[in-house]
Design a protein around this nucleic acid. Structure first.
Length: 447
RNA sequence: GGUCCGGUGGCAGAGUGGUGAUGCAGCGGACUGCAAAUCCGCGAAUGUGGGUUCGAUUCCCGCCCGGACCUCCA
């Protein structure tokens, strides 16, 4: 069996992945904050996790993948107030949209998708334990984690706690003992969502939810924790501090996986630049597999540039793969080719796996059915090539009308009236249908 | 200011201490009424200056350039 190696952000090195329990691999990913539709940056993180989990499921007998939903947060409060609805209603609606978008994008659902608001009790218990053991303190209705009590603080993100605040852009709240201390619990006014706690009515800080939910579903020590690289600090650094101090003797995550960010047409995606692309938006004008192939075309730890041209190219590549499958006569999946598995096992090297798929496509095009079957199998491992080729090439077209036009054109060609034949072909092309004349007659597909 | 990451052919994008994947684009050819698709062939790259080494794109140092993060953005 291929040995999986992964890059660990904590050690900043790539090493063989050794599960705590080979019979049961456990993965936690930080999921979205549900106040708006998912964008393609969110999707990149989800997709990295998706490929990781698909691969782990091939390599190990049992995998539990937990991806949380943050449904209590100041941004949610603000948006709910803006819309004049409750946070639960906003969260429920957003979660339904999120599930629809991810299903459309071909992202498999996690095994467990815990919501923060359903685990406030666990968070309060964890905070109480941190207070009792001296790692946290209450002040003015807040509970704060005391960074100075955790000597390893800063190790994950490579930061020196003493220097951390030197360039910070925020004012330090007066109730903090050290500027780097972060909030575990904060008070809520009567109009804000809140829960009763030993420190009064309030709501949890952002970081504590992941510590509590990861422990609840995976145990205090588990295998892989992932998320976008922007979460490395402070979110993951803080989670790690909370969990290591709150669950003595535990190791929290063995491997920390972080995917790089995504740009749009060369610029950072941001609301102010107006280049924010939601999944839904992109799927309006490209098949989901094209979006997926585009994202997998760059290694997850490199910054990826999302471009319209790239999306079109991805679609043409898929045309080539589907054509090869069709040509090889592969109507079923074969075993996953070793080269593909091997590529993915090298720290999820999806671009290398895609390169192998191109070679398989060459062989399939040459008529090797087993190559076509291998291509399909490789596709499934990375969530591609799941459509029926016929469907892929002809979805959204009026087959009867096209067949009729082809018959007319054939008659024109037989009469050597090429002007008329070409006019028919041009008309179909304008309607998004491409004709291909082969020895066996004329075939067609959408452009 | 601090920390970190990266600079590979026209473009996208892997890998590697010893003749630099893969795709797109380009060029020549086959096929075609013309195309499309497919096939054959061709040209084309490791930011910069040093160091280590028999040999560096790969390791080390300086420089230049780009990017990310620095308290709640995947």
């Amino acid at each position: 069996m291929a040995q999986l190696t992964l890059h660990d952000s904590l050690t900043r090195s790539t090493a063989p992945f050794v599960p705590l329990d080979p019979a049961h691999v456990r993965v936690y990913y930080c999921g979205p904050t549900v106040y708006d539709l998912l964008h393609i940056g969110n999707l990149r993180a989800m997709l990295t996790a998706d490929v990781l989990v698909r691969l782990l499921r091939r390599l190990y007998p049992r995998v539990t993948f937990v991806r949380n939903i943050t449904d209590v947060d100041d941004k949610i409060n603000a948006r709910a107030a803006e819309l004049g609805i409750g946070i639960a209603a906003l969260a429920d609606g957003t979660i339904a949209e999120l599930h629809a978008d991810l299903a459309a994008a071909g992202v498999l659902p996690p095994d467990i998708e815990p919501r923060a608001t359903h685990h406030v009790g666990e968070m309060i218990a964890l905070i109480a334990s941190l207070v009792a053991s001296g790692y946290a303190y209450a002040a003015e209705g807040h509970v704060l984690f005391s960074v100075r009590h955790f000597p390893e603080y800063g190790r994950l993100s490579g930061r020196n706690p003493d220097e951390l605040l030197a360039g910070a852009r925020v004012e330090v709240a007066p109730y903090k003992r050290d500027p780097g201390d972060f909030v575990l619990w904060k008070p809520s006014t009567s109009e804000l969502p809140g829960w009763d706690s030993p420190w009064g009515r309030g709501r949890p800080g952002w970081h504590i939810e992941c510590s509590a939910m990861a422990e609840r579903y995976l145990g205090a020590s588990f295998d892989i924790h992932g998320g976008g690289s922007d979460l490395l600090f402070p979110h993951h650094e803080n989670e790690r501090a909370q969990s290591l101090c709150g669950y003595p003797g535990s190791s929290f995550a063995t491997v920390w996986l972080h995917n790089a960010m995504l740009n749009v047409e060369g610029e950072k995606m941001s609301k102010s630049l107006g280049n924010f692309r939601t999944i839904r938006d992109v799927l309006q004008d490209a098949p989901a597999e094209a979006l997926r192939l585009l994202l997998l075309g760059t290694h997850y730890r490199s910054v990826l540039d999302f471009t319209r041209a790239g999306l079109d190219k991805a679609r043409h590549t898929l045309d080539r793969f589907y054509r090869a499958i069709q040509h090889s006569g592969a109507d079923a999946e074969g075993p996953v080719p070793d080269e593909v598995l091997h590529a993915l096992c090298q720290d999820l090297n999806s671009p290398a796996a895609i390169a192998v798929m191109h070679r398989l496509a060459d062989a399939a095009m040459a008529g090797r059915q087993s190559a076509g079957e291998g291509l399909r199998a490789a596709g499934r491992l990375v969530g591609l090539l799941q459509a029926d080729p016929e469907q892929w090439f002809r979805a959204g077209t009026d087959a009867d009308a096209v067949e009729q036009a082809i018959a007319e054109r054939l008659a024109a060609r037989k009469a050597r009236d090429f002007a008329r034949a070409d006019a028919i072909r041009a008309r179909l092309l304008a309607d998004g249908v491409v004709l291909e004349d082969g020895p066996a007659g004329t075939t067609w597909r959408r452009a």
